[in-house]
C-alpha cells in the first residue's frame, strides 16, 4: 500500500481533520487500538504546534510498507519563527504557548521515531514514525 496525503493546517478545525485522517489510515494499516490512539494523539499535539507556534503549515501523512513491517509517517512543516533552543523545547514541562509543556517531549514518547529540524526565521519540520 503506497498512500500519501497532504493536509494544510490553518485553523483548529484542520487539527480535527488531521486527527481523523491519521486515525483512518492507522485503522486501514491494522494498528492496534492503543497504537492508533498514540499516533492520533501525537498528530494532534504536533498539528496544534504547527498552528500555534508555526503560524500554520502542512502535514504529509504517509503509509509505510517495508514488507515485514508497516507504519505511518507524518511530516509536519511550517515556515514560522523556528525554535531557537531545541534541547530546551524537548524538555518535559517546557512551554511557551501556555500549555502543559508536554507537546514535543510527550509526543516523542508516543512514537518510534522522532526527528526535528528547525531554523530560526525559516521554520520547523518534525517527522514522526509509528510502526504497527
Amino acid at each position: 500500500m503506497q498512500k500519501n496525503e497532504v493536509i494544510s493546517i490553518r485553523s483548529s478545525s484542520d487539527v480535527v481533520l488531521v486527527r481523523q485522517a491519521v486515525r483512518q489510515l492507522a485503522v486501514e494499516l491494522g494498528f492496534s487500538l492503543i497504537n492508533q490512539t498514540k499516533i492520533v494523539t501525537g498528530a494532534s499535539e504536533l498539528a496544534r504546534n504547527t498552528l500555534e507556534h508555526g503560524g500554520g503549515g502542512t502535514v504529509n501523512i504517509e503509509a509505510l510498507d517495508e514488507g515485514t513491517r508497516r507504519g505511518l509517517r507524518l511530516i509536519f512543516e511550517d515556515s514560522g519563527p523556528g525554535i531557537p533552543d531545541l534541547e530546551l523545547a524537548l524538555k518535559d514541562g517546557f512551554t511557551t504557548g501556555g500549555g502543559l509543556g508536554m507537546g514535543l517531549s510527550g509526543t516523542k514518547r508516543l512514537v518510534n521515531e522522532f526527528d526535528i529540524v528547525s531554523r530560526v526565521g525559516e521554520g520547523t519540520r518534525i517527522t514522526i514514525t509509528k510502526w504497527k
Partner: peptide, 14 residues
C-alpha cells in the same frame, strides 16, 4: 476514560 486513552495520556506525561 477509555483504557487506550489512559495509557496514551500516561505515556504523554500527563
Amino acid at each position: 476514560m477509555q483504557p487506550a486513552v489512559a495509557i496514551t495520556l500516561v505515556e504523554l506525561g500527563l
